[in-house]
Lab assay of single mutants.
Amino acid sequence: MQGVVKVNSALNMRSGPGSNYGVIGTLRNNDKVEIIKEVDGAYEIRFNGKVGYASKSYITIVN
């Protein structure tokens, strides 16, 4: 499943599905991501070869 990031500035990509996990990357508006699955209000995603988590509130599914 594919998604597009929709933010005003940037969205943190984290090592786990919550803000208490470390930041492993930054997503920008209109970045395209692969959605692997939904976990606790976040999506597990793949972006630029990395797998991490981002809030589903800022990712629009575009299948």
Rank of each mutant, 00 (worst) to 15 (best):
M1K: 11
M1A: 10
M1Q: 11
M1H: 10
Q2M: 14
Q2F: 14
Q2C: 15
Q2W: 15
Q2K: 11
Q2I: 15
G3E: 01
G3C: 09
V4K: 06
V4Y: 08
V4R: 07
V4I: 13
V4M: 08
V5S: 01
V5A: 03
V5Y: 01
V5F: 02
V5I: 07
V5E: 01
K6T: 11
K6Y: 08
K6W: 05
K6E: 06
V7D: 03
V7Y: 07
V7T: 15
V7K: 09
V7H: 10
N8V: 13
N8D: 14
N8A: 13
N8P: 11
N8M: 11
S9M: 09
S9H: 14
S9A: 10
S9I: 12
S9Q: 12
S9F: 14
S9G: 15
A10F: 15
A10H: 15
L11P: 02
L11T: 10
L11S: 04
L11Y: 05
L11F: 07
L11G: 05
N12L: 15
N12Y: 15
N12G: 10
N12A: 15
N12K: 14
N12S: 14
M13N: 02
M13E: 02
M13A: 04
M13H: 02
M13I: 15
M13Y: 07
M13Q: 02
M13G: 02
M13D: 03
R14I: 08
R14T: 15
R14C: 14
R14S: 08
R14W: 15
R14Y: 15
S15I: 07
S15P: 04
S15Y: 06
S15A: 12
G16A: 06
G16D: 06
G16P: 03
G16L: 03
G16T: 05
G16F: 03
G16S: 08
G16K: 05
P17S: 04
P17N: 06
P17F: 05
P17M: 06
P17T: 05
G18K: 06
G18E: 06
G18W: 04
G18A: 07
S19A: 13
S19F: 11
S19R: 13
N20M: 11
N20V: 08
N20T: 11
N20I: 09
Y21T: 13
Y21P: 03
Y21Q: 07
Y21E: 10
Y21C: 15
Y21H: 10
G22L: 13
G22S: 15
G22Q: 15
G22P: 15
G22Y: 13
G22W: 10
V23I: 13
V23P: 05
V23F: 04
V23S: 07
I24K: 02
I24Y: 01
G25H: 11
G25K: 04
T26R: 10
T26Y: 10
T26V: 14
T26H: 09
T26P: 04
L27P: 01
L27M: 05
L27K: 00
L27Y: 00
L27V: 04
R28F: 12
R28H: 13
R28D: 05
R28Q: 12
R28I: 09
N29F: 08
N29W: 06
N29A: 07
N29Y: 09
N30E: 08
N30I: 02
N30P: 02
D31M: 05
D31T: 07
D31Y: 05
D31G: 02
D31Q: 06
K32S: 09
K32V: 14
K32N: 08
V33E: 00
V33N: 00
V33A: 01
V33W: 01
V33Q: 00
V33S: 00
V33P: 01
V33D: 00
E34K: 06
E34P: 01
E34F: 12
E34G: 04
E34V: 10
E34R: 06
I35Y: 02
I35E: 00
I35W: 01
I35C: 03
I35H: 00
I35G: 00
I35L: 03
I36K: 03
I36F: 07
I36D: 01
I36A: 02
I36M: 09
K37M: 09
K37H: 08
K37A: 13
K37E: 05
K37I: 05
K37P: 00
K37N: 12
E38C: 10
E38I: 08
E38A: 08
E38K: 03
V39L: 10
V39H: 09
V39R: 05
D40C: 14
D40L: 11
D40F: 11
G41R: 05
A42T: 14
A42S: 14
A42W: 15
A42L: 15
Y43I: 02
Y43T: 00
Y43D: 00
Y43H: 00
Y43L: 04
E44G: 03
E44H: 10
E44R: 07
E44W: 08
E44D: 00
I45R: 00
I45S: 00
I45M: 03
I45P: 00
I45W: 00
I45Q: 00
R46L: 12
R46C: 12
R46V: 12
R46H: 08
R46E: 07
F47M: 04
F47H: 09
F47D: 01
F47K: 03
F47E: 01
N48P: 01
N48C: 11
N48H: 10
N48A: 10
N48Q: 12
G49D: 09
G49H: 06
G49K: 05
G49L: 04
G49V: 02
G49I: 03
K50T: 11
K50A: 09
K50S: 08
K50D: 06
K50F: 08
V51E: 05
V51H: 09
V51A: 06
V51G: 03
V51F: 07
V51K: 08
G52N: 00
G52D: 01
G52S: 02
G52T: 02
G52M: 02
G52A: 05
G52Q: 02
Y53H: 01
Y53S: 01
Y53R: 01
A54M: 04
A54Y: 02
A54C: 14
S55F: 08
S55R: 08
S55M: 11
S55L: 11
K56H: 04
K56T: 10
S57C: 15
S57I: 14
S57N: 13
S57T: 13
Y58F: 13
Y58Q: 06
Y58R: 05
Y58C: 14
I59N: 00
I59S: 00
I59M: 02
I59E: 01
I59L: 03
T60Y: 14
T60V: 14
T60I: 15
T60A: 11
I61L: 11
I61S: 04
I61E: 04
I61Y: 05
I61C: 08
I61M: 08
V62A: 08
V62I: 13
V62M: 11
N63H: 12
N63L: 11
N63K: 11
N63E: 12
N63C: 13
N63Y: 11
